[in-house]
Each structure stands twice: as C-alpha cells, then as structure tokens.
C-alpha cells in the first residue's frame, strides 16, 4: 500500500481533506437538546423550528417491527389499486427514510409529498416523547425523486432548509426534494 512515491504526508493530507459525512440525525439531537434547555427558561420564545432528514439509515427496531412498519406504510402509500406504476419493478427496492422536523409550538405536523398523494392526513409526524418539539416520520421510499414539504398545524408550509428546494414551486408554497438511490 506504500508503493507510490508521493510524499506520505501529502497523501495523508489529500485523504483527510475528503468530506466526512456526519449522521444527519445529529441535527435533531442538537435541536432537541436546545429545546429541552429552553423549556421553562424561555417559554414561547421560538416561533417554529424545523429540520430534517438526509440519508437512508437502518432503524434501531427489531426486524419484525421494521417489517411491520414498512408493510403498513407501503400499503398506505403504494398498494392502492388502479394507480400508476410507481415505482417501476426494476427500481422497486425501498429503503427507510427518516424525516425530522423541530417545531416547538406546533400542535400537529404532517409530512406531505409525492409519496403520500399530498394528503395531509396520511403521514402525521410523531412528537418526541420527551418534549414534543422534535417530530419524526419514517417512510420506505423506492429509488426516485420526490417532492415534499412539512405542513404545520394544518396551515403553514415549510420546506426543508437543508434539502434541495424544488425549483418549480408553481403553487406559492415551497417544496423540497429528496432523491433516493438504489446503489
């Protein structure tokens, strides 16, 4: 492995400069800790906070639990008769995605997008049992490109600040894009 004659220190530097991906769930943990710290200290200070997901990851649930979750959601999202053929059979392998939003003063938050017919009743996000300011939803998504947004208290649309924004926001409320890979 030391066959090339480049200065090893330069090789180390090149290697170390490569981007490092930190688990995006860290953002949710940070915001949760901040929200916990603010509870009681600054009541009603924050407006709405949000945050999000990034990449697919294995969830810490039992295989049976994961299966049940995936099956249940998949049935809601995809297994409706007479719909278009999405996803295509060749790209049908789905992966679990976690969406996270921090909304300290929200009473309800829904994840709405191409994956649930933009139906605000379909994927309610669950509040954190600890403080209620971190809301999460888990969805199995097949490879593809999906538009989505968060709907807070049934009236306020939030795009994901850390995800790409949908460029063609024709409807006056922002959307974000999640791209799911298969390889």
């Amino acid at each position: 492995m030391f066959e090339d004659r480049q200065d090893p220190v330069d090789r180390i530097v090149s290697h170390l400069r490569r981007p490092v991906q930190i688990d995006p769930a860290l953002d949710g943990r940070v915001m949760q800790e901040i929200a916990d710290g603010e509870t009681g200290r600054r009541p009603g200070a924050a407006v709405v906070a949000w945050r999000w997901l990034i990449r697919p990851r294995q969830l810490a649930v039992s295989p049976l639990g994961a299966l049940a979750t995936a099956a249940g959601l998949a049935a809601l999202v995809w297994a409706l008769p007479g719909r278009g053929a999405r996803p295509a059979p060749a790209e049908a392998t789905s992966r679990q995605f976690q969406f996270v939003v921090v909304a300290p003063r929200a009473t309800r938050v829904a994840l709405v997008g191409d994956f649930n017919d933009w139906d605000a009743t379909r994927t309610p996000m669950r509040p954190s049992p600890r403080g209620g300011s971190v809301w999460t939803a888990v969805l199995p998504l097949s490879p593809g490109r999906y538009r989505y947004a968060f709907l807070v208290d049934g009236s306020r649309w939030l795009a994901d600040p850390a995800a790409p924004h949908a460029r063609d926001d024709e409807f006056g409320a922002p959307s974000s894009v999640v791209t799911v890979g298969g390889s």
């Binding site: 930190i22 953002d27 915001m31 924050a46 921090v102 850390a162």
Partner: peptide, 14 residues
C-alpha cells in the same frame, strides 16, 4: 427568537 434558524446553521456546519 427563531430557534428554527439555528437548525440551518447546524446543517450548514455539521
């Protein structure tokens, strides 16, 4: 008071 804005900073520098 917009705590949510901090989430964007966290995502930016994470």
């Amino acid at each position: 008071g917009d705590t949510g804005a901090y989430a964007a900073l966290v995502a930016r520098y994470r």
